[in-house]
Nucleic acid binder design. Sequence first.
DNA 1: GACCAATGCCAACACTCGTTGGCAAACGCT
DNA 2: AGCGTTTGCCAACGAGTGTTGGCATTGGTC
Lengths: 193, 193
Amino acid sequence: MTAHAHQTQPRRSDATRAAILRAARERFAADGYERATIRAIAADARIDPSMVMRYYGSKEGLFAAAAEFDLRLPDLAAVPPRQRGEALIRHFLTRWEGDETLVALLRAASTNPGAAERMRGIFADQLTATVATFGTDPTTTARRAGLVASQILGLAFTRYIVRLPPMVDVEPEELVSWIAPTLQRYLTGLAEN
Amino acid sequence: MTAHAHQTQPRRSDATRAAILRAARERFAADGYERATIRAIAADARIDPSMVMRYYGSKEGLFAAAAEFDLRLPDLAAVPPRQRGEALIRHFLTRWEGDETLVALLRAASTNPGAAERMRGIFADQLTATVATFGTDPTTTARRAGLVASQILGLAFTRYIVRLPPMVDVEPEELVSWIAPTLQRYLTGLAEN
DNA sequence: GACCAATGCCAACACTCGTTGGCAAACGCT
DNA sequence: AGCGTTTGCCAACGAGTGTTGGCATTGGTC
């Protein structure tokens, strides 16, 4: 095996690829997996639908590329233990408002098995790994991560997907003050109650 | 206007209608709104797709009929104030496990505007009405109901839709012990924190 | 300037979808 | 028994889908 550079050289079509990806994220976030058509995405990106196929292989391939996502969880072990809940909800709120990829993934996860699988990966692996660094009883780590995910995803679902009026109108700072204690208890509270 | 009986007399096709509705709920719950095809629903009910149209008018009409749902919230004002969170989560868990209508509604709400609207109605109206009977500051009622909805729907989303392993495996009783305090605080906790 | 790969568009295929209209059989009523 | 209504199925339409192959054009390389 020869030594070869892993960084692919820039292609002339990179701008097109990026435009497709941007349009795809928008459409998937707004309409979900099945209602977001390749034709509509291509129209948004001002190119031909066949280009999407050439560059991403299939609709599933396009979604896989568009739903690439990293939670970028901060190193919570470095945060004072009693402030970890607040740090978590703050991080998620900013992450969510600034990147529609998560909304796309969340919408699609309801109906698309691949999207659900990816969602499981993100929230089980990344979140569990973080919780595991806290030194609580290892047998409860997965459960704690799951509970945190349930509140985080429930917040996102009601605020960005279903758009429940009280959850849409409430100020982020007030959300933090309500939800931080919940996450804090899920992270560090006693297991039996 | 003559006096007429409002109770429609039983029709010969009632069995067929019920079979369609049952199959529809199953399909909508398993596949979501757009992947659940009328043809598949009709096949499950062992009738012709055109019958679905005759009895329910359209796919949207069928979904509206299949997603008819009442939370049947108990009279929480009669429950001791400190046990209302536990009573709530218990009620929702049993309601959810026993009726796939809610799962159908939840799945469809991600991509279908009508389903989202109905979800808003159910969780805003019914839940808010219940919270309003508790005598807390009326200006916080909607927010409290929204927060409760966020945790309840987050639980359902992770357990029944995305199927996060830790949330699927955990025993209902342990879910109650973890989530009851959360709902309790959302219902009766101080507003500013 | 000649070659060749990369980029883009057009037209079409094969399929599935919701939906419709017509026709046959079964039923209920007098 | 005879009639009208109800129930059910069949065949088809029109629209929209993901996907494919071919062809013109552009760009870089020797």
